[in-house]
Design a protein around this nucleic acid. Structure first.
Lengths: 214, 214
DNA sequence: GTCTATATTCCGATAGAC
DNA sequence: GTCTATCGGAATATAGAC
């Protein structure tokens, strides 16, 4: 049984770790940084989460399930018992899930999307075992919906377009901007999910509906 | 003056470090891993590159200049003394540069594109000082060309579309696939730059030419 | 649950022999 | 240029007092 204070402590650790993992990556973040930022004792991480790996898993899982549920609900709402939905609506479903996640402070706002975008480039071994089952279902649903909405495209090309769509979306919401790296001024501002979605939608919609390559 | 053997050693270090930095990130790679993989003594890194930071900078700079030159040449070839080029041709110029880089074993093949894609999400402090000057020029040229080819779009929207385009491109060539993270089978194969470009082109072209959002 | 103290390992870096 | 040996510090993790 956990007391109020205990919950507070483990939660402070999760919050601090989440921010630091996003900013500096898993290997680039030490437990001393985390416990110091959380204002808790260095031994608390091992007490609550067993290890640094355990902490990362907890950080991820706290957000993963709400996000998966949200995404799956959106695609189910669109496709269940329907036959006439468009690729744009499929993209919109995913984007709405990301936006609602990113706009909700209870889910950490955009932090989890940034963590996803990072994990995407820098896969953490912890995720390789825990993640696929739940998110595999999510991915298969969106791929099937896209395939249904774009029957003229081969399965291979559907997969590629899903890849392009998610790359653009995740990096856009996470603020991973090539201009941030290449220029002194980033020139775009990713802090407003509503604006990101507005800019993103025409691009994604046209890309998904473009003629087949092969 | 460096002897033949010395060059061989520093090059082996660069090759090994490049692969490991791409795979595990800067913080996630130790100098012991690098020197062990390169088959050289642990002290060799400091002898040749001064420090781990110095090594990363050397790893990056070995590829950065060829890639910048290639990209700038492609956009100059398209736009110099011309008025009637399309957004698709601008995208093609960038993609051709990435493809030629990725297909050339002398430039490490796709390794540098992967390093760029990673640096993009996980900015290395070393780059913040060294990179912008050269790549700022590159970015400004492509933005100007896009703006010229898409005069109906505001500067803000041009910047966003360049962001989306480069996100999709870099992740595609680097093989950073959401399906790699979410599913047991990645479903797409990024090893052939020619195929990636073929799949990517219709998507990017349609996205760039899509109507304005605002 | 929280803390101090510490065990153990690994890190980047360097001195100095050859 | 290459090697061994080692320094000083920071890393994760844990034992045990409170």
């Amino acid at each position: 049984m956990e007391t109020g204070k205990a919950l507070e402590t483990s939660q402070r650790i999760l919050d601090a770790a989440e921010l630091l993992f996003v900013e500096h990556g898993f290997a680039g973040t030490s437990m001393r940084q985390i416990t110091s930022a959380a204002g808790v004792n260095i031994a608390a991480v091992n007490y609550y989460f067993g290890s640094k790996d355990g902490l990362f898993q907890a950080v991820f899982e706290r957000r993963a399930e709400p996000f998966a549920q949200l995404s799956i609900r959106k695609i189910d709402e669109l496709t269940t018992n329907k036959n006439d939905y468009s690729a744009i609506e499929v993209a919109q479903a995913f984007m709405t899930a990301a936006m609602e996640m990113g706009s909700n402070p209870e889910y950490g706002g955009l932090v989890f999307v940034k963590l996803l975008a990072r994990s995407y480039v820098e896969p953490n071994p912890v995720l390789k075992e825990k993640l696929p089952q739940r998110y595999g279902e999510l991915t298969r649903k969106y791929l099937a919906a896209l395939s249904h909405a774009l029957p003229h495209l081969s399965n291979a090309e559907i997969n590629w377009r899903f890849h392009f769509m998610t790359s653009a979306m995740f990096n856009a919401f996470a603020g991973n901007n090539v201009m941030r790296l290449f220029m002194a001024q980033p020139l775009v501002n990713a802090r407003d999910p509503q604006l990101v979605a507005e800019m993103l939608m025409p691009f994604i919609a046209a890309g998904l509906n473009s003629p087949a390559a092969q």
